[in-house]
Amino acid sequence: MTTDFDDARAARLRELLGTRSIVLVGMMGAGKSSVGKRLARRLALPFADADTEIEQAAGMSIPEIFAHHGETAFRDGEKKVIARLLEGGPGVLATGGGAYMNAQTRAAIADAAVSVWLKADLDLLLRRVRRRDDRPLLRTEDPAGTLARLIDERYPVYAGAAVTVTSRDVPQEVMVDEVIEALDRHLGGSGTGADA
């Protein structure tokens, strides 16, 4: 149930965003898609999941794309899909874990959106990704070691996002509140409370 305050805050954030989108970045399992859907609903903005869009464009799942065409072809398609989605802003976009590692994609996001890094620790990510077996990069003999290596590689790059919010095991609506609060502060609204 939304309140008049929620509606007013959503309207103010949409005004502050203008034509820009909100792009959620972070590791697999950080909650980008689930938080993104709820955030879009709360802000009355369209939602897109880059991975879903890639699968629809390719006519196959991401694991199938990796298996048949390789990671390089996937990343090229990912870059093109994200660029197309950013042209349609404003909206909320959840990206795949490796998308933000591409310098052209980062530049496109910086030009057309506000990036939000959902930062999660290794233990949380491991608990979440173990629930699914559709993560091509984790199809190794040591998924925990692979995930730790990806964190080491990616976190310094993710740290360049405009906003950082710590992802943790709390109700998704709490995460959405914290993202809204952080965006409000970043965009110069009248957010209150501690840093997310």
Rank of each mutant, 00 (worst) to 15 (best):
K79S: 15
R128L: 08
R41G: 11
A107E: 12
V129S: 03
P143T: 06
G36C: 03
A161P: 01
G145V: 07
S61T: 13
G193Y: 06
R128F: 10
G18S: 05
G98L: 06
E64P: 09
F5G: 00
E71R: 12
E64H: 09
D195P: 09
D152T: 13
D6Y: 14
L13I: 11
R75A: 03
G193K: 03
V23H: 10
D121H: 11
G91Y: 14
E71L: 02
I180P: 00
D4W: 13
V92F: 14
R128N: 02
D133I: 07
G59W: 10
D4L: 12
D134C: 00
A194T: 15
P143M: 07
M27P: 07
F5T: 08
L147E: 00
R12C: 03
N102H: 14
S33R: 06
H186L: 04
R9E: 09
D169N: 06
D4F: 12
T95C: 14
D123R: 14
R149Q: 11
E55V: 02
L118E: 04
T52G: 03
L13M: 08
L43N: 00
A44D: 13
N102W: 04
E78G: 01
P136G: 09
I82S: 02
A148K: 07
D142F: 09
S21C: 06
V176K: 07
A194D: 15
V170I: 13
A182E: 08
D51C: 09
V129I: 10
A159P: 01
V176I: 05
L39H: 12
H68N: 10
G97I: 02
S115P: 01
M27E: 01
T146K: 15
A162K: 15
R149A: 11
R42T: 06
E178L: 05
V81M: 13
R135I: 05
V179N: 04
I62K: 08
L147H: 11
M101Q: 13
V174A: 10
S190K: 12
D177S: 06
P143V: 04
G97A: 06
V129M: 09
D177H: 05
A8S: 06
R84C: 04
M28D: 06
G26W: 05
T164S: 06
D4I: 11
L126V: 07
G191F: 05
T52H: 10
V116M: 06
S190F: 14
L86M: 07
T146M: 08
H186G: 01
T105H: 13
K119H: 14
R128E: 10
T2V: 14
T2S: 13
S33D: 00
S33Y: 12
T19V: 08
H69K: 13
D177E: 09
M1R: 15
E71I: 03
I54F: 04
T72F: 08
V92M: 11
T2E: 08
K80S: 08
F74D: 01
R130Y: 12
R127G: 08
D6I: 09
I22P: 08
E71H: 11
D195S: 11
A113E: 04
R127D: 15
T146W: 12
I54H: 00
S115L: 01
S190W: 12
I180L: 15
A107F: 13
A83T: 11
L39N: 00
